[in-house]
Amino acid sequence: MAELSDQLMAFTVLAYLAAMVCYAAEYAFGNRSHIGRAATRQLVGAGAPAEAVEPEPEPAPPRDRGALLGKIGVGLTWLAFALHLGTVVTRGIAAHRMPWGNMYEFILAVTLVGSAVWLGVLTRKPAVRHLGLFAALALVVLLGAAGLIAYTPVSPLVPALNSYWYVIHVSTIILASGILLIGAVPAAMFLVRTGYDAGKRSFPYTLGAKVPPAEMLERLTFRLHAFAFPLFTFGALIAGPLWAEASWGRYWGWDPKEVWAFISWVVYAAYLHARATPSVKRTTATWIALVGFVTMLMNLFGVNLFFEGLHSYANAGGM
């Protein structure tokens, strides 16, 4: 079972890579106006005056190679997701426990959630497909990092992790992190797109030519973050301290992982604040969301690899 999981992991990364190639090809050959229209239609549904809602008949472009490639990309993403799910499930079966007992498994689970959220968004709003390149890129990079620097052979839990809080605390943080991971994609592309719309034509703003309209990206960013923030609050600031109290005797002890969870929480709170403050520009708010994501990465990689703390599942390799 453990070997099967490892093999599935390799295929998962390959499938995401293939999806990425298709998205990139669509990007290169894609028919700009078609995507633009689809995006506008989506946006209109979201709150523009009622008169404009009438869906215009879809003039299917006769031979749109780009769109076909994009659809193949979506199909491959589904395939990759299925393989990814298989990787995580077989890992859990091999270890006889929930598959998030160390850093390797944690990243596998976070990216699985990210992938699921991405597919969910894509199903509800096909117009965001052009973000697929960047979503797949994020997944490939993180999975690659998991395999290269954090791989750990299957092993049972250390006693400190043997608790139902392990299920509650870690799973909610995984859910929140996966959503925030995917939330960072429209956030970054929103910044690119606003730069492009403002006339900037240097890299990376050139990428903005074919992504959905800025307003739509911004709203998607907010929706994802607003959904993930309470989950993260519960997982990191309620369930975590409850477990810490039972296990270590104090609910909060400024262990490095706790410090960085606190920092992420404060930064994401600042994002929601900034977005609700009329005098703060949406681009500024979105930058804050990206800073929040960087702090999450810092907690995942920086703290696990460089700092010594009580969180035993934070160990990369070994143990």
Partner: peptide, 17 residues
């Protein structure tokens, strides 16, 4: 409030280093 939230996040960093 926004600036203070940011300061709080930054001020917490040395404690992990």
């Amino acid at each position: 409030a926004l600036v203070l939230l940011f300061l709080l996040a930054v001020a917490a960093i040395p404690g992990s280093v």
